[in-house]
Nucleic acid binder design. Structure first.
Length: 311
DNA sequence: ATGACCACCTGCGAGC
DNA sequence: TGCTCGCAGGTGGTCA
């Protein structure tokens, strides 16, 4: 589930159904799903046993669950595997999750049949009768355990420290974003998809925000004025908030919340996936263009291509 | 150092 | 029916 609104829907589900619970057992059914966990599947499972899940957090498309505990009980559970991290009051551990293109985090009854692409199962030491499942058809996503950035209030995992804040983060710095955008020698859609500049924006919401802003995806970032950047950021936020309000975008059952339910924002898309359908502003057929091994959807009338700049 | 590409996977629908 | 092709919400390593 890819972009920020869909990931936020999942975060809220985790917060409601998983936070506060203590892990009892972890089962890794596909090694690729924990490939970002350097110490491997056995370590991943052993390390998590006995830990208590804290508040679910998100930055851009990354999710994480800070974990606490890991005292004597966890040491025993690890059966002699030396801890990577020395317990400390200034930093801790978190379970990091990325859904990639097709990942799902589902809260399922323990007796529900395994999904075809079930990759990781996490059982809890309580009698609520549900477990957390990571299901991922294409295995681009995965879970891993990391040390958190010392002193960070949100317990940010160290390996995603390079990910920029997302536009729904109150601490996102609009002025700094504009400056960074101007510095880049690239085009606007590439910049929107660069998670080290602004996180959480993917192919759908980039196209939607550009359509709302009447900007062509190939416009050089160097041409952006402060007001233009501000307007674009406003549209990015508006479209993401609108999507969030209806549970995110899903074209099929691949993009669901922790209870397996789809969002409705696909009905409100103005550009993405609307090739040959009339632009909702001017009626001109929306076009699709191959772009970076993917697609860009835009209105050829509302979103005029930039004049080719002289070399 | 920065920017551009493509490999990493599985499945589905269209066309032949 | 069944093959091949193109395409899918993302990221990171590698190349220039």
């Amino acid at each position: 589930m890819p972009e920020l609104p869909e990931v936020e829907v999942v975060r809220r589900g985790l917060e409601r159904w998983i936070s506060g619970r203590t892990i009892d057992a972890v089962e890794v059914l596909h090694p690729r799903a924990i490939r970002r966990h350097a110490a491997g599947a056995a370590d991943f499972a052993a390390r998590l046993k006995g830990l208590r899940i804290g508040t679910a957090c998100r930055r851009g498309k990354y999710l994480w669950l800070p974990v606490t505990g890991g005292g004597p009980a966890a040491q025993t559970a690890a059966e002699g595997i030396p801890p990577i991290i020395t317990p400390s009051v200034t930093h801790g551990l978190a379970i990091l999750a990325h859904l990639g293109m097709s990942g799902q985090l589902l809260v399922q009854p323990q007796d529900a049949p395994d999904e075809k692409h079930l990759r990781i199962r996490i059982r809890f030491a309580d009698d609520l009768g549900t477990e957390l499942r990571f299901v991922d058809q294409r295995t681009f996503g995965g879970l891993s355990v990391h040390d958190t950035v010392p002193g960070d209030a949100d317990h940010l995992p160290d390996v995603i420290a390079h990910i920029a804040r997302d536009p729904l983060d109150p601490a996102f710095d609009d002025a700094a974003f504009h400056t960074a955008l101007r510095r880049r020698r690239t085009t606007i859609k590439r910049a929107l998809l660069d998670q080290s500049l602004i996180s959480g924006v993917g192919n759908i919401y980039a196209d939607e925000a550009l359509w709302r802003s009447r900007l062509h995806y190939d416009r050089p970032t160097a041409t952006f004025t402060r007001p233009r950047t501000a307007e674009l950021l406003g549209h990015v936020r508006d479209v993401m908030n609108a999507a969030l309000a209806v549970g995110g975008t899903s074209f099929d059952s691949l993009y669901v919340n922790v209870n397996g339910e789809s969002g409705y924002f696909d009905r409100s898309l103005d550009a993405y996936g609307r090739e040959d359908e009339p632009c909702r502003r001017c009626g001109t057929p929306i076009r699709r263009r191959p772009w970076m091994n993917r697609s860009s959807y835009f209105c050829p009338r509302c979103q005029r291509p930039p004049r080719p700049s002289r070399p």
